[in-house]
């Protein structure tokens, strides 16, 4: 089973088990089934609960918020994560606030699913990883799926919440086979722990293999819950290891690295991080590959870290 099938099957199950689950998005109708096929089969099976929408990302999420307040459980697909900026106001100033500011008189069980990430040659406005902009919004949970374990189970977790969630699907993952959690490198006494999420998990796994050839033991810790940030889970996964590297694909600054470092402050850990470029992502495949985190880049960062960085 591939990641896209795991997500698709979870989505169809959610719609089968709960008549209140509705789906909104652009181009989600069968036979197309969404730009990345996650919604395939939904409109054929549930024609009354799937709306193909105009190109109105803010409007779609707004309509979903209204449906959610009235007891429905909407799942919105935003075709490219880059377009979530158009729905930011509905997430931040509406969905995220209603339960609290209305004194819990309403719930907003909204899931906004969206693909993020590069490596497809789509260029500056279709390749970004913008999830950090949704992390830190009170009331909003942010998830990032990866192929180890069960992607569909994570989607069920997001859909079970009574408050809004943003669900990030790195777009290179859709075609990847789902693998067992046991396939993640997890040596008992690692020399380094690599923290990664989404599409960077497989990069970290490939780097761990390179490192093993150099007799460096690396543990890869995939983070799926980006917000609220699982600080304790991170500390437990790092354990007594004194070298930690965080890997993210988005632009550097105010992101995953900072949150990981905060979780490890005063733990005697030497910490380093790598991220995507601090400029837009080019369309050129070769240039894109140079800029985004790679197994070789992670390998070099670990070598440098083990060579003597300062503890945070």
């Amino acid at each position: 089973m591939r990641v896209v099938e795991s997500l698709n099957s979870a989505l169809l199950d959610l719609m089968t088990c709960d008549q209140r689950v509705v789906l909104l998005g652009e181009d989600v109708l069968d036979p197309y089934g969404g730009a990345f096929k996650v919604t395939k089969g939904a409109s054929d099976r549930f024609p009354d609960r799937v709306w193909t929408t105009p190109i109105s990302e803010g409007g779609i999420v707004g309509v979903a918020n209204g449906l959610a307040i009235k007891g429905w459980r909407p799942i919105v697909e935003i075709m490219f994560g880059d377009f979530t900026t158009l729905a930011f106001d509905q997430i931040l100033n509406h969905a995220a606030k209603f339960a609290w500011m209305y004194d819990d008189q309403v719930t907003v069980p909204l899931v906004v699913r969206t693909p993020m990430g590069g490596r497809r040659g789509y260029g500056p406005t279709h390749s970004q990883s913008l999830e950090k902009h949704f992390c830190g919004i009170p009331g909003v949970a942010v998830y990032a799926v990866h192929q180890y374990g069960s992607p569909g189970t994570l989607l069920r977790e997001a859909a079970a919440r009574d408050q809004p969630s943003v669900f990030i699907e790195n777009k290179v993952l859709y075609a990847r086979p789902v693998e067992a959690v046991e396939a993640l490198p997890n040596p008992p006494s690692p020399d380094v722990v690599i923290l990664a999420y989404g599409g960077c998990v497989e990069v970290a796994v490939a780097a761990a293999k390179l490192l093993r050839e150099e007799e460096i033991a690396a543990r890869v810790v995939p983070v799926t819950r980006l917000w609220p940030f699982p600080e304790e889970e991170i500390r437990l996964a790092v354990g007594p290891c004194r070298h930690v590297l965080s890997v993210e694909e988005g632009a550097p600054g105010w992101g995953f690295a900072a949150q990981c470092a905060l979780a490890l402050v005063n733990k005697g850990v030497s910490f380093a991080h790598i991220a995507g470029p601090d400029h837009p992502i080019p369309s050129s495949a070769a240039w894109e590959a140079d800029l985004l985190p790679s197994p070789q880049g992670v390998f070099r960062a670990v070598e440098s870290l083990l060579g003597g960085a300062q503890a945070i």
């Binding site: 803010g58 409007g59 779609i60 999420v61 707004g62 309509v63 979903a64 918020n65 209204g66 449906l67 959610a68 307040i69 009235k70 007891g71 429905w72 106001d89 509905q90 100033n93 509406h94």
Partner: peptide, 15 residues
Amino acid sequence: IQGGIAPLAVGSALG
């Protein structure tokens, strides 16, 4: 938020 309630109203009416 100006205008933000308009799609919510469409959603609540649909719901």
